[in-house]
Design a protein around this nucleic acid. Sequence first.
DNA 1: GAAAATTAAATTGTGTACATTTAAATTGTG
DNA 2: CACAATTTAAATGTACACAATTTAATTTTC
Lengths: 146, 146
Amino acid sequence: MKPAFRLEDHLCFSIYSCSRAIQRMYQPALKKLGITYPQYLVLLVLWENRECSVKQIGALLDLDSGTLTPLLKRMEGKALLQRKRSQVDERMVTVRLTEKGAALKEKTVCIPETLIRSSRMTQAEMQNLNRTIKLLTQQVTQGQMK
Amino acid sequence: MKPAFRLEDHLCFSIYSCSRAIQRMYQPALKKLGITYPQYLVLLVLWENRECSVKQIGALLDLDSGTLTPLLKRMEGKALLQRKRSQVDERMVTVRLTEKGAALKEKTVCIPETLIRSSRMTQAEMQNLNRTIKLLTQQVTQGQMK
DNA sequence: GAAAATTAAATTGTGTACATTTAAATTGTG
DNA sequence: CACAATTTAAATGTACACAATTTAATTTTC
């Protein structure tokens, strides 16, 4: 007599659902800055190191060139960054923040704060959850054969 | 002297990243069944109640008709379900599992099991995580004004 | 050092997400 | 009963995700 395994018991769904809920919460603030959530993630990467290859960004965000190439072109169109083929290795495209892109940083401080505030969790609880989820991601990724 | 708030410290990113990792892990098994992850979620709903309006499915999965209408049409194309405008209220479209759609259920048992196995977490840990994430989603959703 | 293998982006095609608008049906109110 | 407000899907348009293929450049191997 196996108990029913309902939608709400599926961890995959609660994580999927939570991710979209957070993105919806962030959306108004991001819209004011004229960027989308994945574009915000790219900025987080570039604020840590002003210059990066597409490959490196992809490795950090787990996104491939099929997603990044058009996304970065849109960001270039908004003058947030520049794309330039590397002189050293012409296969590589180097992405580099512009002043405008760098300047956005200070305007985004409020964004993670909305999550911290609305979560009603302590800093320790959030760090704990973050650790747990990252570990789960790692296990899930290792579980793959590829 | 504020410490750096790096990409890896962002809970939003670890959740977003985890969700995509799980979907990638599920993908080979889902592909064998000829469905995508969001389509699998719709099936989870319909296995619980064979007949549903688009509205109800959307409420359960947090998806709007802009996402569901084409998705359900693709599933109808695969003969997994039928869409029919309700006689009672012609605004509503009633979605109903076909035999083929109902039959898929038994072939999906292995899917949540891959997550349970690869996570290397105890059942209690997973339930705990599920509760935490669902609570977070709820808080985040309430934090919205709308 | 040339052919083969590998690597990095870009391209193509399918399928979500979701904001916004439209259209049709139903409900609520005067 | 009429008509405004609401409700439900569908349609439209933009932006991811990602599998699969292509192209060009670099490495490896013989």
